[in-house]
Amino acid sequence: MGFKLLSKLLVYLTASIMAIASPLAFSVDSSGEYPTVSEIPVGEVRLYQIADGVWSHIATQSFDGAVYPSNGLIVRDGDELLLIDTAWGAKNTAALLAEIEKQIGLPVTRAVSTHFHDDRVGGVDVLRAAGVATYASPSTRRLAEVEGNEIPTHSLEGLSSSGDAVRFGPVELFYPGAAHSTDNLIVYVPSASVLYGGCAIYELSRTSAGNVADADLAEWPTSIERIQQHYPEAQFVIPGHGLPGGLDLLKHTTNVVKAHTNRSVVE
């Protein structure tokens, strides 16, 4: 069995187990497998329904001669939608809004960016022009300005110390501490036991640490421990890039980060 097929099978099995364990909360999309990078042309966006009122959005972007996937989250909030992270750029984010209108038909009224990198804030200006209120932590807003990236308009308070959590509509926002970046936030959907790890969490097929220019490698494993301790009931975990899975993604990420750190020390 090929690795790609095995990865998709694991996603399907995880979703099936969740649907059985929580039949009222989960209505997993039966329309197909989780979209992969090879299936999404740059400039297009796919939506994948995880649970009743919960979707991931998947886009792709060219970077350094390669094409990478990027995940975000959409959560229903009454007759409105909360968006977590842009679709990595203005063109993708405009396509995301169009796809949401086509498939869901509810307005996106608020959006949260989970850290300051372009795959999370690139497209904020498109959201703002569409009347979406954009939010991020003060740290993310400051770092985005320093980096020359787009800056969300509103500040999220109460997320300055490791372990801080605040309720934001249908989700809980959690600051686990520094990891992929010093400002990275985690998003949890309690009604569906869905954990969105953003770039602080890796997919299972990833074996290298990737972009760690703004990471705190020493603190990252401790931050992941905080996530595990705060959300032990999480059933569906979405990484910032690639295929979702279960809580095993947290341990896998820790292993990859520690291996990278150990290699760096040896070198």
Rank of each mutant, 00 (worst) to 15 (best):
L6Y: 10
E33A: 08
T182V: 11
L10Y: 15
P239G: 02
H57P: 02
L106A: 12
T86R: 01
L195E: 00
V166Q: 11
H180T: 01
A200H: 02
T254C: 06
K251P: 15
L143N: 08
H180L: 04
T253A: 03
H252A: 04
K251V: 11
H154K: 09
I84V: 10
A94I: 14
H230F: 15
A209G: 07
S223V: 09
E44H: 10
R142M: 12
L143T: 04
S139G: 12
C199T: 02
T207R: 12
R46I: 12
G122W: 06
V171M: 03
A19N: 14
P190I: 06
I224T: 05
E99W: 07
V124D: 04
G246P: 08
G72P: 03
I186Q: 02
T93I: 03
L250I: 07
P138F: 07
H154T: 12
V237M: 01
L47M: 15
A130C: 06
L143R: 11
H180N: 03
V37W: 14
A19H: 06
P152K: 01
Y12A: 12
P138R: 08
E225P: 02
A234M: 07
Y34C: 06
R76Q: 11
E44W: 08
D164A: 14
Y34M: 15
N211W: 07
G148R: 10
L81C: 03
N255T: 10
S16E: 06
D119I: 01
D52R: 10
N211H: 06
T14H: 14
R120Q: 01
G53L: 07
A213I: 12
A165P: 13
A165G: 13
G242V: 05
A200W: 01
D64R: 07
S162P: 15
R76N: 05
G197T: 05
P107Q: 14
A90I: 08
R120E: 01
Y188P: 00
K91G: 13
I227M: 10
A218P: 10
D77S: 08
T207M: 12
A192I: 07
E147K: 12
L5N: 10
L83H: 00
T153Y: 12
V45A: 07
P138V: 08
V11Q: 06
S208I: 10
Q61F: 08
S38G: 10
S264W: 10
P23S: 10
A133H: 12
Y231G: 00
E80Y: 06
S161N: 14
A66I: 15
S208T: 14
G177V: 04
L243S: 14
D52N: 10
A129L: 10
Y34V: 15
L217K: 04
Y34D: 12
F63K: 06
T86D: 00
P190K: 14
P239E: 01
L10M: 10
V11E: 05
V54T: 06
H117V: 00
E145T: 12
S193K: 13
R120C: 04
T261G: 11
E219C: 04
L247K: 11
R46H: 09
R141W: 03
A178K: 11
V256G: 01
S70V: 01
I201C: 04
L106E: 06
P221C: 05
L82V: 09
A111L: 11
L6F: 07
I238R: 00
L10Q: 11
I74N: 04
R206S: 15
L127K: 03
P138C: 03
T36G: 08
I227D: 00
G163W: 06
T114Q: 00
V265Y: 10
L97P: 03
V194Q: 00
A200G: 04
V171E: 03
G2S: 11
G197V: 04
E150R: 00
A200N: 02
K258L: 10
E80H: 09
T140V: 03
G177H: 05
G197P: 06
E80A: 10
D248R: 08
G78P: 04
L81Y: 03
L97F: 03
D125Y: 10
S181A: 07
L127S: 01
H230R: 15
G78E: 09
D79R: 11
I186A: 10
V67A: 15
P239S: 02
E157S: 11
G197H: 01
L243H: 15
G65C: 04
S160V: 11
G72Y: 04
H252L: 03
V45P: 11
G123M: 04
I50Y: 05
D248V: 10
S162F: 12
V166D: 06
T60C: 04
L204T: 10
A178G: 14
I201E: 02
A144Y: 05
K4T: 11
N92W: 00
H230A: 13
A133C: 06
G197N: 04
L195T: 02
Q49K: 10
T182Y: 14
V42I: 06
P107C: 05
A179Q: 02
Y231V: 03
G53Y: 07
V237R: 01
T140F: 04
V45Y: 03
D29Q: 08
Y188S: 02
S162Q: 13
E172A: 04
V54A: 06
T182I: 12
V121Q: 01
I20Y: 07
V189Q: 00
V265N: 13
S27R: 14
S139F: 04
Y196W: 03
L195P: 05
L106M: 15
V45N: 02
I74G: 02
R226G: 05
L106G: 06
V126H: 07
P41K: 12
V194C: 00
W220C: 05
F63T: 08
P41Q: 13
Q103P: 06
P152M: 00
D216I: 09
D118V: 05
V45I: 08
R206D: 06
T14C: 08
V146W: 11
N211V: 09
G240Y: 03
F26S: 14
T153C: 05
N262P: 10
G240S: 03
V28C: 06
A129C: 00
I100Q: 03
N211Q: 12
G105Q: 11
R128W: 08
T134R: 01
L10F: 14
A144Q: 04
L195F: 06
G158N: 13
A259C: 04
V171N: 02
M18T: 11
L47S: 02
S56G: 15
S191G: 13
R76I: 08
L143H: 08
T14M: 05
T253D: 01
N71Q: 06
V194L: 08
S70C: 02
E150C: 00
S193I: 06
G65I: 07
P23N: 10
Q235K: 11
L81F: 02
T86E: 00
S137L: 15
I201K: 01
T261E: 11
L195Q: 00
E267Q: 11
V112P: 05
V75M: 04
C199V: 00
G122E: 08
G197E: 02
Y231F: 08
D52H: 09
F116R: 04
L143C: 05
S160L: 12
M18W: 09
L250E: 03
S139T: 13
E99V: 13
A179P: 04
S193T: 10
P232Q: 10
Y12F: 09
E147W: 15
L217V: 13
M18K: 10
V37A: 15
V42S: 13
A51D: 09
V166I: 10
H230S: 12
D77W: 08
T134N: 02
A90Q: 12
N71F: 00
N92T: 05
G210I: 02
D52V: 11
A87K: 00
P152F: 00
Y175H: 07
G242D: 05
L127G: 01
V126P: 02
T114K: 03
L5T: 14
G53M: 08
T109K: 14
A259S: 10
S137G: 06
T60K: 08
V256P: 02
H230I: 11
I20M: 11
Y48P: 05
S139H: 14
V194K: 01
L156Q: 03
L24P: 12
V67Q: 15
R206G: 15
T140N: 04
S62E: 07
N71C: 01
T14Y: 10
E147I: 10
A213F: 09
S208V: 12
A259N: 11
D77A: 07
D125T: 08
S205L: 09
I227N: 05
I104F: 06
